[in-house]
Simulated scan of single mutants.
Amino acid sequence: MPRQPLIFLHLLGVIVWVGGMFFAYCCLRPAAAEVLQPPQRLPLWAATFSRFLPYTAVAVAVMLTTGFTMLLQTGFQNAPPGWHAMLVLGLVMAAIFAYVYGVLFPALRRDCTAAAWPAAGQVLNRIRRLVALNLVLGICTVAAAMTAR
């Protein structure tokens, strides 16, 4: 596949994932905490994640596929150091995402369905911390991309 469509798809995945994390963490989270009590706030998060996480899963798959394709086209040994940093950071971010989507999100949904608000709150707090970590890693990944020559 030509390089420009790969870059476009790769960047589109970044926009969906990192932009979505920024919106959720910096905008939705404080607004929901300000106006909603846990019995309303926690189901809002479960409903939000049920929509956002599948899009993110596609974005992650697209970014990994396009990233590896471009890396293989160039060759690992010929790739700039920034690409190697992107690869490592992206794999760490993908592993964190898989844990959130595959383990924590089902627990959040289960606890919300059972109206187990303290347990749901604990799970959401774990998700919040991992989203914050992934957001920082995402910003570092963008910085690594900018240094690649």
Rank of each mutant, 00 (worst) to 15 (best):
M1C: 09
M1R: 12
P2D: 14
R3Q: 15
F8Q: 10
L9S: 07
L9I: 13
I15C: 04
V16T: 14
W17G: 03
W17S: 13
G19D: 02
A24D: 00
A24G: 11
Y25S: 13
C26V: 10
C26L: 14
C27H: 11
L28N: 03
A32Q: 10
E34F: 14
V35F: 15
L36T: 12
R41C: 11
L42N: 06
W45F: 15
T48R: 01
F49M: 07
F52K: 01
L53F: 12
L53Y: 09
Y55K: 12
V60Q: 09
V62E: 06
T65Q: 07
G67E: 01
F68V: 14
F68R: 09
T69W: 05
M70V: 07
L71G: 15
T74Y: 00
G75I: 06
A79C: 05
P80F: 07
P81A: 13
G82N: 05
G82P: 10
A85D: 00
L87E: 07
V88W: 06
V88A: 10
I96P: 00
Y99N: 13
V100P: 02
V103Q: 14
P106L: 12
A107N: 11
R110T: 10
C112W: 06
A119G: 01
A120K: 08
Q122W: 06
L124P: 02
R126D: 09
I127L: 03
R128E: 09
R128V: 02
L130K: 14
L133D: 04
L133K: 08
N134H: 05
V136E: 03
I139C: 07
V142W: 10
A143P: 00
A143T: 15
A144F: 02
A145Y: 07
M146C: 11
A148D: 04
R149M: 11
